[in-house]
């Protein structure tokens, strides 16, 4: 199986979460292997986005533990998780609309290159040329270099998704959480996105945890898939196994 030759970068242990009386997540357990593209799928309302929010620290879990690079990040605020190397994108795009495209990337570079408030106020020369160059090379990487001076809010959705991805890369993460990156994209854009995700994993050695509804995309790029339904893990395995799994098929088709 070769399961032991790679380390787990992210471990979800007995995570539960309720909203009022509704149990959104019940005792979730799964792990993401370093260097893999791991997909989290399931019907609407299965708890996928809730789980991503808990991993990135935006929502708090009721019980359980999350370990990132072998350290518990339970209770750590989101900005500290990002500093540890955990980045994410958003299903409902959260770009900085009034900033230019390259400035969005600069905001991503902040976490590794910040200088402190006072020092920023007394430094005359502004942002290091080196950082500007870095932001442009990231834009080139996600194919947005020709849009660098546009206001981010004027980009079409497909390019805004690429920008979020570029901004996440700028934080130099070891793991990126992608929340439905293909939503609102046409077929050609989706194909480009899937190539980009693979490129990021292969060239930058960044692990990917992706929540996605586009099954063609998921099956095409994932090494491992975890299936959620009604807040529970109902299956886990490689794409080919998941496609044949009867409980997954019934969860998606609503059969019993």
């Amino acid at each position: 199986m070769g399961k032991s030759d790679k380390k787990m970068i992210l471990e979800i242990k007995n995570v539960s979460k309720s909203f009022g009386g509704i149990k959104a997540l019940k005792n979730i357990n799964f792990s993401v292997k370093e260097g893999e593209i791991h997909a989290l799928i399931g019907p609407n309302g299965a708890g996928k986005t809730t789980l991503l929010n808990i991993i990135s620290g935006i929502e708090k879990m009721d019980s359980g533990d999350i370990r990132f690079k072998n350290f518990s990040i339970k209770g750590k605020p989101p900005y500290k998780r990002a500093a540890l190397g955990l980045a994410r994108t958003f299903q409902n795009l959260e770009i900085f609309g009034n900033l230019k495209v390259f400035e969005n990337i600069l905001a991503g570079l902040y976490v590794r290159n910040q200088k402190g408030f006072l020092k920023s106020g007394i430094t005359l020369k502004g942002i290091d040329k080196d950082l500007i160059t870095q932001s442009l090379s990231i834009l080139e990487y996600v194919n947005l270099l020709n849009k660098k001076d546009e206001l981010a809010k004027n980009l079409p959705i497909g390019e805004q998704r690429l920008l979020e991805l570029g901004r996440a890369i700028a934080t130099e993460p070891q793991l990126i959480l992608l929340d439905e990156p293909a939503a609102g994209l046409n077929m050609r854009e989706t194909k480009n996105l899937s190539q980009l995700i693979q490129k990021i994993r292969n060239e930058k050695a960044i692990t990917i945890l992706i929540v996605e509804h586009d099954m063609e995309l998921v099956m095409g790029i994932s090494d491992m898939i975890t299936v959620l339904n009604f807040g529970e893990v109902i299956a886990e395995g490689e794409p080919i196994m998941i496609q044949k799994n009867p409980s997954v098929i019934s969860a998606y088709l609503g059969e019993d």
Binding site: S56, G57, Y79, A87, F90, E94, L99, R167, T171
Partner: peptide, 11 residues
């Protein structure tokens, strides 16, 4: 512009 995105970027 977005507090949610800002914290996720480590700010």
């Amino acid at each position: 512009d977005s507090e949610l995105a800002s914290v996720s970027l480590g700010i």
